[in-house]
């Protein structure tokens, strides 16, 4: 996932509009816009239509909000759980990722080692990341084996009440993402500012607080939004490392969607609509926060 430049973009524009230029520009953006627009608007639109009973698997189409109320308890519990998992993963990823970014930009050999190892995790698909984390921290995982702990002595990280393994997997992958994005910003800009501040007599702590962190802030905010939305809406990891109750929203949606009872598809669609709405709200909040960042514009 990338940082988003935000609606409108922050890139320089060259106003050279002519009729033929506009037409050409339109032709240039058209294919990409059509594909993205079809998937986004079509996906949300059909989910919405299904969720209000207008596209049933069997029987007559009839408007109803039953799908939203049928699992109201599960929906609320799932919402709370998904928000908690996404928040924990986002906060931890940003803290660890920012630390890594500072080490990467400051250090020499150690910086390069951290840079290389964090890059290593980037191409790992989340499904495989989940398998790896499971093999590491499950009751029979490598760590309890190495420490000689029995399942009774080892905390329930996989499938336990606190969803630790799920948050660990997200944090592992996404902290690498934050590290790379933020290190990219800091590498291009921090050197000059930092040196100036040092020359002016700023202490190390103050330089970190007043130079490095403000410089990194826009990149951190954008990364945080992306991570939050991703972890909020992702299925495989929570399913593989989670427990049967309560269920995060995507897992609930999947169970209903693949359930063999014929009435559950609208219910799955209702969960999908709720998930999307929350994701869009989070993006809006993130964008608002970004606009308040002095360095953004």
């Amino acid at each position: 996932m990338l940082e988003t430049p935000g609606p409108g973009g922050a890139l320089p524009t060259r106003p050279r509009a002519s009729a033929s230029g506009r037409l050409r520009a339109l032709l240039f953006v058209a294919p990409a816009v059509l594909i993205a627009g079809f998937v986004v608007i079509g996906g949300i639109g059909v989910a919405l239509v299904q969720s209000v009973g207008l596209m049933p698997l069997v029987g007559e189409a009839e408007f109803s909000l039953d799908a939203y109320t049928a699992n109201a308890d599960d929906l609320l519990t799932g919402l709370g759980l998904s928000l908690a998992i996404a928040t924990a993963s986002t906060v931890l990823s940003c803290v660890i990722g920012l630390t890594a970014a500072v080490i990467i930009t400051q250090g020499r050999i150690s910086g390069r080692v951290v840079a290389a190892l964090s890059a290593l995790t980037i191409p790992v698909p989340h499904l495989i990341g989940a398998a790896a984390i499971g093999l590491l921290v499950a009751d029979s995982g490598l760590i309890p084996r190495a420490l000689g702990l029995t399942p009774a002595q080892w905390p329930d990280l996989v499938g336990g009440p606190w969803w630790v393994a799920v948050v660990l997997e997200y944090t592992w992958k996404e902290s690498a993402f934050v590290a790379l994005v933020v290190a990219g910003v800091l590498a291009t800009r921090v050197a000059q500012y930092d040196e100036t501040a040092a020359l002016l007599g700023a202490s190390r702590a103050r330089r970190l607080r007043h130079v490095v962190i403000p410089l990194a802030r826009p990149a951190v905010i954008v990364s945080a939004v992306i991570i939050f939305v991703y972890t909020f809406g992702s299925y495989e990891v929570a399913w593989l490392l989670g427990r049967p109750y309560p269920e995060p929203l995507p897992v609930l949606a999947f169970r209903l969607f693949t359930s063999i009872s014929l009435t559950s598809r609208p219910e799955a669609a209702a969960v999908a609509v709720v998930t999307t709405a929350v994701a869009l709200i989070v993006v809006a909040i993130g964008m608002a926060a970004l606009k308040r960042t002095p360095l953004w514009r």
Partner: peptide, 22 residues
């Protein structure tokens, strides 16, 4: 297992528990 606070999500998880002697 785990005081019934949770259950294996599928038969595979139960099989894993059995395979590991849990």
């Amino acid at each position: 297992w785990r005081e019934g606070s949770t259950y294996p999500q599928n038969s595979n998880e139960l099989n894993e528990l059995y395979a590991n002697g849990e």
